[in-house]
Nucleic acid binder design. Structure first.
Lengths: 342, 342
DNA sequence: GACCGCTGTGGGAGCGCTCCCATTCCGTTT
DNA sequence: AAACGGAATGGGAGCGCTCCCACAGCGGTC
C-alpha cells in the first residue's frame, strides 16, 4: 500500500485527533500507551491512525519530550583493527535486531581520531542519544567513564578490568581458555603452549588465566616458557610461535587467543615442518571465517557474538526505561567447535 | 523515573544571542554560514558560542527546518551473508569518515525480514533521513526505486543492471575479470576456467564478461565448459570446482569471482591432488583476509572498498545539498594483488 | 532634499509533539 | 440530597530552532 511521496502531506497528531473526534492529548496518550484512556477512545484513535497512515514525527517528539529514541553504537577504530572481521557485523546484527523491536534507531559512530572523539563527546553532551553501546576493550579507555559522568546509560561489550563499574556484556573468556586447554589435554597433549593477546586488555588476561587453570586442571606443569604474548594480529601470532618453538621445541599443542593469531602460528609451524595436528595440535578463539577456511580446519572456541549484541541492546533499553530485570553484568558462555587441527 | 537526563544547563540559541548582543536570527545566520552577516556580528557570535559551549539542538533544527542531518545506510540481510566479511566494515569506514566531516549522522539499518522492511519504508516516508545509502546488488531489489519515488536522495553501492537509474558507486568488475585472466594468461596458463557469482547479480555477470574479454584478449578459445556458476559462497565454490574438474580435467587456471569461492575451490583442488599454483593457478576477488590467510596466499583482485564508501557518501551529500560536481555514476578501478597462488 | 536600493538585523510565527493543569463526568460516600 | 474523589479528557504552554517579513541604516541618485 505504497503511499506516494509528498513531503507536505504527512498527517499530524492534530489531524488524527480531529478525525478520531478526540483531543490532541488523548491521541498522544494512546500512542504512548498511557493507561488513562477509555477503550472507546483508544479504538477511535487507532482507527484514525490506520486510516491516515500516521507516523509520529521524531524530531517533534524529541524536542518536546526528553528522549530521542536513538542509541549510539560506538566503535573506536583502534579496536576495529583488532577484532576478527565478522565480529562487528555480528554485534551489529544482534544490536540492530533488538533495537528494531523497540523501534529505536541505531546510530553508528566510528571514532578514529581525537577530533572525531571530541565531536562525539559534544554529541553526547548535547543529549542526542538515549544511550550508548561501547565496543571497548582497552583497559585505559576513558570513554565509558565520560559517558557515565554525563548520566547517559551505557553498556560495554567486554570489560576493562575485573571490577568494571559500567554495565557490560562479555563472554566467558576464562572459560574459553580453560576449555581449549582441556580439549587439547583430552587429545593427549602434554606440552601445551599459549599465544596471548595484548596483556593490557582484560580479555587477553582472562584467556591466559583460563589457560593456566586448564593446565592445572589437567595436572600438567605450568611453565612460563610456554606462554608468549602477542597482539591479536597474524604477524604477532607468527612471532610468538617462533619464540615458542625456539624455547620449547617439544611442544605438542598451542592455544592461540584468537583465530587470526592461530593462522599466523600455523604458517610458522608449516615452515618449521611441524604437521598440524599430528605434531602440534592448534586451537583458536572466535570461530571466524578464518578458522573454517584454514587447512586443516581450525578447532576454535566460539563466542556467541550476535547474542552479545542482542543482550547489550536489551540491557541498554532497560537501563533507559528504568525497568531493570536484565542484570548489569552479563557473561555469556562459549563453546568449542572441533575441526581437524586438534 | 531514575533517569535524571534532561540537563537543563544546555545553552540555547537565544542565550547565545543575548550574550553576543545580537538577535536570534543573526546567530542562526552565523551558524548556518549565511553570507548576510557583518564581520563584527560574526565574531561576537563566534565568541559567545565558544564561551557558552553552545551546540545546536538537532531535534529543534529538524523540526523547524526541513532536514534531519542524518543519512541511513541500509544493508539488506540477504546481501550481508554474501559479501566477504570485511566488506561492510570497510564501506562503513569510508561512509563514516565522509559523513563525519559533514557533521552528519549515520543511521545503520539492517533489513532482514519483510516486517523490518516495512518499518523502514515507514521511516522513509516519515522523512526521517535526508538521504539513503543502499548496499544493494540483487537485480530485482525494488527498494532503490521506492526510495527514488519518495523523492529521497539515494546512492547505491553496485548496480542492478547496466542502465541503473539510481545514482551509484561501483567498482570496475569487468576490468577485474579481464585483468585476472590477463594475469593468469601472462603466467602461461592456457585452460583458464571461471567460477562465477549468482548470475542474477549484475556484479557477477560483469566479472564473467571480464573473464570472457580476457580470454579473447589472450587469444584463447572461449569454452563454456570452463564456466561454472556458483553463488559467492565457499560451498558453492567447492561444487563449481568439482564440476570444472569433471568437465575439463586439463584446466590449469581458475578465476573465482570472490575470495571465498576461491577458498572453496582450493580445498577441492587439494583433495583432487592438484597443486596450487604448480598444477592450477588460482585467483580471487576482494583481497580479503581470506586471501591473505590461505595457503598458498591467494592472488586476488582488490576493490577499493573504503573508497567506495567515501565516494557514496560524498555523492549523496552533494545530491542532498544540490551542489553537484560528483558524477551520478562512479566506477572505481580495481588492482591486482599478487601472491603465491599464481 | 526626497527618493531609491542595498545590506544587516530583530523578532514573530510556527514546526509537531509532550507535559500538565483545568475541566467534565461519572459513581460513591455521608 | 449534597458533597466528594477519581478517571477521562481537552487544550494551553512551551521545547529550540528556521523561515521570513519588516525595518533600520547607509550611501548614492535624480
Amino acid at each position: 500500500m505504497a503511499v506516494s511521496g509528498r513531503q507536505t502531506g504527512r498527517p499530524t497528531l492534530e489531524e488524527v485527533a480531529a478525525r478520531a473526534g478526540v483531543g490532541r492529548g488523548t491521541v498522544s496518550r494512546v500512542i504512548n500507551g498511557s493507561p488513562r484512556v477509555s477503550d472507546r477512545a483508544k479504538e477511535a484513535v487507532g482507527q484514525a491512525i490506520a486510516e491516515l497512515g500516521y507516523v509520529p514525527n521524531r524530531a517533534a517528539r524529541a524536542l518536546a519530550g526528553a528522549r530521542t529514541d536513538a542509541v549510539a553504537l560506538v566503535i573506536p577504530e583502534t579496536e576495529a583493527r583488532l577484532f576478527a572481521e565478522p565480529y562487528f557485523l555480528d554485534i551489529i546484527r544482534g544490536v540492530s535486531a533488538e533495537l528494531a523491536d523497540a523501534d529505536m534507531q541505531l546510530l553508528l559512530t566510528l571514532i578514529r581520531s581525537s577530533k572525531e572523539r571530541q565531536r562525539f563527546e559534544q554529541y553526547l553532551s548535547a543529549q542526542r542519544v538515549d544511550g550508548v553501546l561501547l565496543v571497548s576493550v582497552h583497559g585505559d579507555d576513558p570513554l565509558p567513564d565520560l559517558v557515565q559522568e554525563l548520566g547517559i546509560p551505557a553498556v560495554l561489550n567486554g570489560r576493562r578490568s575485573a571490577d568494571e563499574p559500567v554495565a557490560y556484556v562479555d563472554s566467558d573468556n576464562v572459560g574459553a581458555g580453560r576449555s581449549a586447554v582441556a580439549h587439547l589435554a583430552g587429545r593427549g597433549r602434554r606440552r601445551i603452549a599459549t599465544i596471548t593477546g595484548p596483556l593490557d586488555m582484560y580479555v587477553a588476561r582472562c584467556r591466559l588465566d583460563g589457560y593456566r587453570q586448564g593446565i592445572e586442571a589437567a595436572e600438567l606443569p605450568l611453565d612460563d616458557r610456554l606462554v608468549a604474548a602477542a597482539d591479536f594480529t597474524e604477524e604477532g601470532g607468527r612471532r610468538a610461535m617462533r619464540q615458542l618453538l625456539d624455547r620449547c621445541p617439544g611442544l605438542d599443542g598451542v592455544f592461540a587467543a584468537s583465530d587470526v593469531m592461530a593462522a599466523g602460528a600455523r604458517s610458522v609451524l608449516r615452515d618449521a615442518g611441524r604437521r598440524v595436528p599430528d605434531d602440534v595440535a592448534l586451537i583458536g578463539v572466535d570461530d571466524s571465517a578464518v578458522a573454517r577456511l584454514m587447512d586443516p580446519g581450525l578447532t576454535s572456541v566460539r563466542q556467541p557474538i550476535e547474542e552479545m549484541g542482542r543482550r547489550m541492546a536489551r540491557a541498554l533499553l532497560q537501563h533507559i526505561t528504568g525497568s531493570g530485570t536484565e542484570p548489569r553484568q552479563v557473561i555469556l558462555p562459549t563453546d568449542l567447535v572441533v575441526r581437524d587441527s586438534t
